[in-house]
Amino acid sequence: HNLTITQGKLFFHYNPKLCLSEIHKMEEVSGTKGRQERNDIALKTNGDQASCENELLKFSYIRTSFDKILLRWEPYWPPDFRDLLGFMLFYKEAPYQNVTEFDGQDACGSNSWTVVDIDPPLRSNDPKSQNHPGWLMRGLKPWTQYAIFVKTLVTFSDERRTYGAKSDIIYVQTDATNPSVPLDPISVSNSSSQIILKWKPPSDPNGNITHYLVFWERQAEDSELFELDYCLKGLKLPSRTWSPPFESEDSQKHNQSEYEDSAGECCSCPKTDSQILKELEESSFRKTFEDYLHNVVFVPRKTSSGTGAEDPRPSRKRRSLGDVGNVTVAVPTVAAFPNTSSTSVPTSPEEHRPFEKVVNKESLVISGLRHFTGYRIELQACNQDTPEERCSVAAYVSARTMPEAKADDIVGPVTHEIFENNVVHLMWQEPKEPNGLIVLYEVSYRRYGDEELHLCVSRKHFALERGCRLRGLSPGNYSVRIRATSLAGNGSWTEPTYFYVTDYLDVPSNIA
Rank of each mutant, 00 (worst) to 15 (best):
S203G: 06
S203K: 15
D204W: 11
I209C: 11
T210Y: 11
Y212A: 10
L213T: 14
V214S: 03
V214G: 15
F215S: 10
R218T: 13
R218N: 07
Q219K: 10
A220S: 12
D222H: 02
D222V: 13
S223K: 08
E224I: 07
L225G: 08
F226S: 04
E227V: 11
E227Y: 09
L228M: 06
L228N: 10
C231P: 02
L232D: 13
L232I: 15
G234C: 07
K236Y: 13
L237Q: 09
S239M: 03
T241F: 14
T241Q: 11
S243L: 10
S243A: 11
P244K: 07
F246S: 11
F246E: 07
E247I: 05
E247H: 03
E247W: 12
S248H: 02
E249P: 07
E249S: 07
D250P: 11
S251K: 14
E258D: 08
Y259H: 05
A263V: 05
A263N: 05
E265R: 14
E265L: 09
T272I: 09
S274R: 11
Q275C: 07
I276P: 10
L277H: 10
K278G: 05
K278P: 13
E279V: 08
L280N: 14
E282G: 12
S283C: 14
S283A: 12
S284G: 07
K287G: 07
K287T: 14
K287A: 09
T288M: 09
F289A: 05
F289N: 09
F289R: 06
E290I: 15
Y292D: 07
N295T: 06
N295K: 11
F298Q: 13
F298L: 13
P300A: 08
K302M: 15
T303N: 15
G306R: 13
T307H: 13
G308S: 08
A309H: 13
D311G: 03
P312V: 04
S315R: 09
S315D: 14
R316S: 07
R316A: 10
K317E: 14
R318S: 11
R319H: 12
L321W: 13
G325I: 09
G325R: 02
N326S: 11
N326Q: 05
N326P: 14
T328V: 08
V329Q: 08
V334N: 05
V334L: 09
A335D: 09
A335S: 10
S341V: 11
T343I: 06
T343V: 10
T343M: 09
V345D: 08
V345Y: 12
V345H: 06
P349L: 10
E351Q: 04
H352L: 13
H352Y: 13
R353V: 15
P354C: 14
P354K: 09
E356K: 06
V358L: 13
V359C: 08
K361H: 06
S363Y: 05
S363N: 03
V365K: 00
I366Q: 02
S367F: 05
L369W: 01
L369S: 02
H371I: 14
T373M: 09
G374D: 09
Y375Q: 06
Y375G: 00
Y375W: 15
R376Q: 08
R376H: 14
R376T: 08
I377T: 03
I377P: 00
A381R: 02
A381G: 01
N383P: 02
N383D: 03
D385I: 08
T386A: 15
E388M: 06
E388K: 07
R390N: 09
R390S: 07
R390E: 01
A394F: 07
A394W: 14
A395C: 07
A395S: 13
A395V: 11
V397Y: 11
V397K: 15
T401V: 07
M402F: 07
P403G: 09
P403E: 04
E404N: 07
E404D: 12
E404S: 06
A405L: 12
A407K: 12
D409L: 11
P413H: 13
V414A: 11
V414E: 01
T415M: 15
T415K: 12
T415Q: 11
I418L: 11
I418S: 11
I418N: 13
N421L: 07
N421K: 13
N421M: 05
N421P: 12
N422T: 06
N422K: 14
H425N: 12
L426S: 03
E433F: 13
E433V: 13
N435E: 01
G436T: 11
L437M: 09
I438R: 01
I438M: 12
I438P: 02
I438A: 05
V439S: 04
L440C: 10
Y441G: 00
V443D: 01
S444V: 13
Y445V: 11
R447P: 08
R447Q: 14
R447N: 13
Y448W: 15
L455Q: 07
L455M: 12
L455F: 08
V457E: 03
V457Y: 14
S458P: 04
F462V: 10
A463N: 09
A463E: 07
R466I: 07
G467T: 04
R469Y: 07
R471V: 05
G472D: 07
G472P: 05
L473G: 01
S474A: 09
P475V: 09
Y478C: 00
Y478I: 01
R481I: 06
R481P: 00
I482S: 01
I482E: 01
R483L: 03
S486C: 01
L487V: 12
N490C: 11
S492I: 13
S492K: 02
W493V: 01
E495W: 05
T497P: 00
T497G: 08
Y498D: 05
F499C: 12
Y500R: 06
Y500S: 08
V501F: 12
V501I: 08
V501L: 06
D503V: 12
D503T: 07
Y504L: 10
Y504E: 13
L505Y: 12
V507Y: 03
V507I: 11
N510W: 11
